[in-house]
């Protein structure tokens, strides 16, 4: 039987030239917060669109001593997270964890963990559509020009039209945000709940879009402002009066589930590790 360490691939699957290219792009992305740096995006044993951007960043950054956490919509045990983790472990043999505080690198699909992050941690997002201007401009060459010239008028017109038709800004997840007063970014798509967490955070956020071949970053202590209009300020999802059916949390992002009682709806924390630890805490009375 093959020993776990006798893997037949290079450490972290990618060849070293690929890692170096991605590392150079990561550095440029950190130096120009919010700017989408083009990169080659290699073929991987998973399809584009299944987290290859985030995965390539993770594989380029991790070392033998790294402790990794992978989540999908806040859940450590969902199919996407488990499969990505399995690929990473089989080519690195590194330690993984579900404990947010213990992780050096957290790779995530569409959520930021509820627990606070530190300067020592790197948070990596899997991004399906990195171009926030795509909804208002289909041509790539034109969106690049718009970013270059900070020509974001059309985005604000879209917000205004939303208010005109629906009485409020209707963008849910992937709410656009202005980074360092310069570039508009697509926020992963994380829910609105998580967007303020990007602002002046202690840790580095890296965003990887494998299919669209872009890497961008929000460095620590960087201003990130969700787009809004003066009289229609940004607001998060409202969970007032609701609580998690498992741990009783009233201050976490909740998923709505169908239920036989309580008007056919029940709620559970989206962050599975937070929910588990919160339940244990309330059991212990701490």
């Amino acid at each position: 039987m093959m020993n776990k360490t006798d893997y037949q691939y290079n450490f972290a699957f990618l060849d070293e030239n690929t890692k170096r290219e991605i590392r150079r792009c990561i550095i440029k992305a950190v130096c120009i917060p919010g700017f989408q740096v083009p990169f080659a995006s290699r073929e991987l044993p998973i399809f584009f669109g299944w987290g290859t951007g985030g995965l390539q960043i993770t594989l380029s950054v991790i070392g033998k001593e790294t402790v990794l956490k992978v989540i999908d919509q806040g859940d450590d045990d969902s199919v996407n997270a488990v499969n990505l983790k399995r690929l990473i472990i089989s080519t690195t043999n590194i330690k993984t964890t579900e404990d947010t505080k213990e992780a050096d690198i957290i790779q995530s699909r569409h959520r930021i963990t509820e627990d606070s992050l530190t300067e020592e941690q790197i948070y990596i997002f899997q991004v399906p559509l990195p171009e926030p201007l795509r909804k208002v401009e289909p041509k790539e060459i034109e969106t690049r020009r718009m970013h270059g010239e900070k020509d974001y008028g059309k985005m604000y017109v879209k917000l205004y039209e939303d208010i005109l038709h629906h009485g409020e800004i209707t963008i849910g997840a992937d709410y656009p945000a202005l980074v360092n007063e310069r570039y508009i970014i697509a926020t992963s798509p994380i829910p609105r709940w998580d967007v303020p967490r990007l602002n002046l955070s202690e840790n580095l956020f890296l965003f990887g879009a494998g299919r669209e071949r872009k890497i961008y970053a929000v460095p620590p202590y960087t201003k990130v402002e969700p787009l809004s209009l003066e009289d229609y300020p940004f607001r998060k999802e409202d969970f007032s009066g609701k609580e998690c059916g498992i741990c009783g949390s009233r201050d976490s992002y909740l998923n709505e589930l169908p239920s036989e009682d309580d008007n056919g709806k029940s709620y559970v924390c989206s962050d599975s590790f937070y929910c588990r630890t919160n339940k244990l805490k309330s059991k212990d009375g701490t």
Binding site: R23, I26, G63, K64, I122, P219
Partner: peptide
């Protein structure tokens, strides 16, 4: 070691750029 040494050095370079 272009695999492990360069990863260690890169993690420090990335920290330097991040902070």
């Amino acid at each position: 070691d272009i695999v492990h040494d360069s990863q260690k050095v890169f993690s420090i370079i990335l920290k330097a750029f991040s902070f």
